[in-house]
């Protein structure tokens, strides 16, 4: 589009950084709404939440926590590598981050799968007939919150894919690093949310 050309001509890294932060704020409040729901229902059903949480596997949760923390570090390092003009290292670090995200999702898949096998999923007969109301709420929130988080992982992977492509094409380079930096910021947000999800769901027994 001819009308766009001049806008690209002046590149404003600080502008896009603020833009990304503002977007992160909306994401924080999106999850914030869910944290409010969680807080209220945990306050109203403390015992049921503890009982239900015992079903969750702390080991898988901890492994996924560490995977996300490491991936946060690798994507942060990839920005450093780009700034140091080490294109190869940048790409490798970003690919590692991508693979870690994938492993996280695979773990999540098996974790959810086991729950489904035990008949624990929203609206299931087992849940409505056997479990208490507090437990139903716990699992409802567990699926919604980890599900939404997983969706953000997928989006983060897409953004990383775009960043990878543009780095290899050369349109993201040390002087125009905003896309990679913003991909990093977004990925740290995903990590940040998991930092709270992990203790709230896995560590309350």
């Amino acid at each position: 589009m001819s009308q766009v050309i001049h806008h690209d001509a002046h590149y404003d890294p600080e502008g896009s950084k603020i833009g990304m932060w503002l977007f992160i704020f909306t994401e924080l409040l999106l999850f914030g709404g869910l944290f409010i729901v969680y807080a209220v229902y945990r306050y109203l059903n403390p015992e049921a939440f503890e009982m239900a949480a015992e079903e969750l596997n702390v080991t898988i949760g901890a492994v996924n926590t560490i995977i996300l923390l490491v991936s946060s570090m690798t994507i942060a390092m990839s920005t450093t590598a780009l700034q140091k003009k080490q294109k190869g290292t940048t790409v490798v670090l970003l690919e590692i981050t991508f693979m870690l995200a994938l492993i996280f999702l695979i773990n999540k898949y098996f974790e959810w799968g086991i729950k489904f096998e035990h008949g624990i999923f929203p609206g299931s007969e087992y849940m409505t007939s056997e479990l208490s109301q507090g437990e139903i709420l716990f699992y409802g929130l567990y699926f919604v919150m980890t599900g939404l988080h997983a969706l953000h992982i997928v989006v983060g992977m897409v953004i990383m894919g775009v960043a990878l492509h543009r780095i290899q094409k050369g349109t993201v380079h040390p002087e125009r690093a905003s896309l990679l930096e913003n991909a990093g910021l977004y990925w740290h947000l995903v990590d940040l949310i998991w930092i709270f999800l992990f203790p709230l769901f896995y560590l309350i027994s």
């Binding site: 890294p13 560490i66 923390l69 570090m73 450093t80 700034q83």
Partner: peptide, 26 residues
């Protein structure tokens, strides 16, 4: 518009932070 100078964070800083984060998790 002039691009502001970026502060480059070292690999070492990131590694240390990661180790602290993992320790806190445990």
């Amino acid at each position: 518009m002039e691009n502001e100078k970026h502060h480059i964070v070292s690999y070492k800083t990131y590694t240390v932070i990661l180790l602290v984060l993992i320790a806190l998790t445990f």
